[in-house]
Design a protein around this nucleic acid. Structure first.
Length: 466
DNA sequence: TGGGGTTAT
DNA sequence: ATAACCC
């Protein structure tokens, strides 16, 4: 049973109100807790080899065979059977076939099935809790603080009985149920297990979860036990986790460029970054970046879980060996537009900006150097996005070709290796003159019994606050 | 090395 | 518009 509340003096801070009863023991090991841990409980969910899992659902007969997902000349991911045979993520098709001749490859250049399943996962998590943030197609952060808080209250009322951690505890650290944060994180591990079970039961997908007091730590800890397992990080093991990273680029938020700049300063690992003089770092990287990444190096991350909501942009791209004539460009652009218009139609919102991106061949500087031009979509075209309108294609192609000529002098030879079209600045459909949300939600398309606007209706609660 | 995404400047 | 970051 829990200790009784201790009727001691009110402390100077108004920070802790109802939980003086669970303070760490004065004699207890006061190892370094996560800085600014607060009392949040964050779960990070990371689906196992996501594209390969989706393909195994689409083709059940391939489930027990070594399976890879191919885009162009690359095996972008593969199932665990293939990994047992030595196939790695982002291996070239040639290497993969040599490593594992029985490897079965499916083409994954069209992301539609993955995108759809990805949003199903995010929406499912959204049923548990409103604070769900997507990271790519296969990861989600969930701020489960409120769920944990509710269960903690219930637990206190109903008596203690047995509180059990779900899954692994990082570093096998012993639990101290006198510590309120330990209790919260244990409850968090139970919630995370329920999230994973729901994703598996409803969508047939497995994945890993990490539970910790912030996003950085939750993400780092989720990978400790790898397929289909979960791990909770207790604050005292924070330094072990973060210092265990062998290179600074493994810290989420420190990418390729920043890692190179840090290396030039002699900063190679997380300990180096922790110990590096702040003033020097600030002069080198700017105050904001310097302070942020140095906090990250201590496992300190106060960034909130920001609900992603519907996508802010829709893009479609294709890469190729060579595209060197205007006619070819036009053909590729038309292809990209067809699938994009379909996606935008299903979303229900209207884009107000269009962008064309290209990559020009260069022997050095292999795949950097993309350029783009964007412009507003002419107002008279915008209403046409609501309908199944193929006559949008030609004005949009014309617009995109204008953007193309702003980047490329078509009278000179050129060599493109990528084209990409992006629609952004998405706005909800204007509300009808009748004006009410009810009217809006009841709009049906002629044939089906479904609302005209999928996501617009789905996310229409947002309109109430406008 | 693919085909996506986001935010900051 | 680009550059950085994420998957």
């Amino acid at each position: 049973p829990p200790q009784q509340p201790q009727e001691e003096e009110k402390e100077m801070e108004e920070e802790e109100e109802e939980e003086d009863w669970l303070r760490p023991q004065p004699g207890g090991a006061a190892a370094s807790p996560a800085p600014s841990a607060g009392r949040r409980v964050i779960a990070h969910l990371d689906l196992d080899c996501f594209y390969a899992q989706v393909e195994m659902i689409r083709h059940p007969q391939l489930r027990d065979k070594p399976l890879g997902v191919q885009q162009k000349n690359i095996v972008v991911t593969c199932n665990y059977e293939a990994r047992r045979h030595g196939v790695k993520k982002l291996m070239s098709v040639k290497d993969a076939k040599e490593t594992c001749p029985q490897l079965i490859l499916v083409n994954g250049e069209d992301l539609t099935p993955y995108r759809e399943m990805s949003y199903k996962v995010t929406e499912l998590l959204g049923e548990f809790c409103p604070l769900v943030e997507r990271l790519g197609f296969d990861e989600n952060f969930v701020d489960i603080t409120e769920i944990v808080e509710k269960r903690l209250t219930q637990l206190l009322q109903s008596g203690w009985s047995n509180l059990c951690v779900a899954g692994h505890v990082y570093n096998d650290q012993a639990l101290n149920l006198q510590d309120t944060m330990h209790v919260r994180l244990v409850i968090g591990s139970q919630v995370a297990e329920e999230l994973r079970e729901a994703v598996h039961a409803r969508l047939g997908l497995t994945g890993c979860a990490g539970v910790a007091s912030n996003k950085l730590l939750a993400k780092l800890v989720s990978g400790t036990f790898k397929p289909n397992q979960q791990t909770v990080l207790l604050p005292e093991s924070c330094q072990e986790l973060i210092r265990g990273l062998d290179h600074i680029q493994k810290v989420p938020g420190i990418g390729y460029k920043t890692a190179k700049r840090l290396e030039m300063l002699g900063v190679r690992n997380v300990c180096d970054l922790q110990a590096f003089p702040s003033a020097v770092l600030e002069k080198e990287l700017g105050v904001s970046m310097a302070q942020r990444i140095q906090k990250l190096s201590y496992g300190d991350d106060d960034s909130p879980v920001t609900p992603s909501g519907p996508p802010q942009s829709f893009s479609d791209e294709d890469s190729f060996k060579k595209c060197s004539s205007e006619v070819e460009v036009k053909e590729k652009i038309e292809e990209l537009l067809h699938s994009l218009l379909d996606r935008i139609y299903k979303d229900g919102r209207q884009p107000h900006t269009i962008r064309l991106t290209i990559r020009q061949f260069s022997s050095t500087d292999k795949w950097f150097h993309r350029e783009s031009r964007q412009c507003p979509i002419p107002p008279h075209l915008i209403p046409k996005f609501g309908k199944e309108n193929s006559n949008l294609i030609s004005p949009l192609v014309a617009l995109l070709m204008k953007l193309f000529r702003k980047m490329i002098d078509v009278d000179l030879p050129f060599h493109l290796t990528l084209l990409s079209v992006c629609f952004s600045n998405l706005k909800d459909l204007p509300t009808s003159k009748k004006g009410s949300i009810g009217f809006y939600l009841k709009q049906m398309s002629p044939g089906s019994g479904k609302p005209v606007c999928g996501n617009a209706a789905k996310y229409s609660l947002k309109m109430l606050s406008v």
